[in-house]
Design a protein around this nucleic acid. Structure first.
Length: 283
DNA sequence: AACTTAACCTGATCGC
DNA sequence: TGCGATCAGGTTAAGT
């Protein structure tokens, strides 16, 4: 599920239960997710104090007292469950173990963090904290979309001359790191750009104009996730899913929400992914 | 080198 | 109710 805003929401949800606390016991229930776990991961996590939780793109980094960091990616279906702790307004009891609980962290003080991932596209690795950015999965990433390095001049330069659709270019984590299928659809809708437009065909103004829209869409989604964390009403402590209101994503066949537009939201498939768009106001 | 497609997995949903 | 086809928010490896 998770794109950048969801991962940030998960990070914030984990913080009270993990930051500053000791991992009393780590349990690892299988040898791999997308890739093998690092050797002896459970032993290496047990007894470590979590100094803090960071996010880079769609990755969470838990910095540990021993100088290593736990790198976490949720893939498509990864979830984090917080139990045995107060989460917002509610205390969450430990749930019954379920089928795809792959890694469990018992925190000192009674909180339990459960990583559950049905499709197993997720990943975990251990990396030296000081060299974390050099990890192969992080080294290839483009700038953070909410950071200063991501601006109009940068994006325009990266799109220039590209013969790939703008949809694919914005999904390319090497260009900008953190967007996924949903938010690219939403960004292109707000920009009035057809997903099939070739990246290199955008005018300078169109390319630069994407930057504030990307920031806006992600910021709003993070804010929505934050509110869902604040009044957390789910009984199970599951982090990562929250209610969004999308303008085009998943709205195939429904009327375009642009005032005065008579279009109907359509769906095309680009590189195997659904692109929802309004054929009238996105050109 | 640029770009596209297939593959990795399971589960939920839809049409018959 | 059952069953197959389709789809799912990500990323990499293997194609063209």
């Amino acid at each position: 599920m998770p794109e950048l805003p969801e991962v940030e929401t998960v990070r914030r949800g984990l913080e009270p239960a993990m930051a500053g606390r000791l991992i009393a016991e780590a349990r690892v229930n299988r040898a791999d997710l997308r890739w093998p776990f690092p050797p002896r991961m459970a032993e290496r996590l047990t007894g470590q104090r979590v100094l803090g939780l960071r996010r880079r793109s769609k990755y969470i980094l838990a910095d540990l007292s021993g100088g290593q960091s736990l790198l976490i990616h949720l893939g498509m279906s990864g979830r984090m469950l917080v139990s045995g702790a107060q989460v917002g307004e509610f205390f969450h009891d430990h749930p019954a173990p379920s089928r795809h609980d792959h890694v469990v962290l018992e925190m000192e003080g009674g909180a339990r963090i459960t990583f559950n991932d049905a499709r197993r596209f997720g990943a975990m690795d251990l990396v030296a904290t000081e060299a974390a950015e050099a990890h192969p999965l992080l080294a290839v990433l483009g700038p953070e979309p909410l950071g200063n390095a991501f601006d109009g001049a940068y994006l325009a330069a990266r799109l220039e001359g590209r013969r790939t659709p703008i949809k694919a270019a914005l999904l390319d984590q090497r260009i900008v790191a953190g967007l996924g299928n949903i938010y690219v659809c939403e960004v292109l809708f707000r920009a009035g750009l057809a997903p099939g437009r070739l990246a290199g065909s955008l005018s300078r103004a169109e390319a630069e104009g994407l930057v504030p829209l990307i920031r806006e869409v992600l910021s709003e989604a993070i804010e929505a996730g934050g509110s869902s964390l604040r009044d957390y009403r789910q009984a199970d402590g599951e982090l990562g899913y929250f209610q969004h209101t999308f303008r085009v994503y998943g709205r195939e066949g429904l009327p375009c929400v642009t005032p005065g537009c008579s279009g109907t939201v359509g769906r095309i498939v680009q590189s195997g992914r659904s692109s929802f768009h309004c054929p009238l106001c996105q050109r």
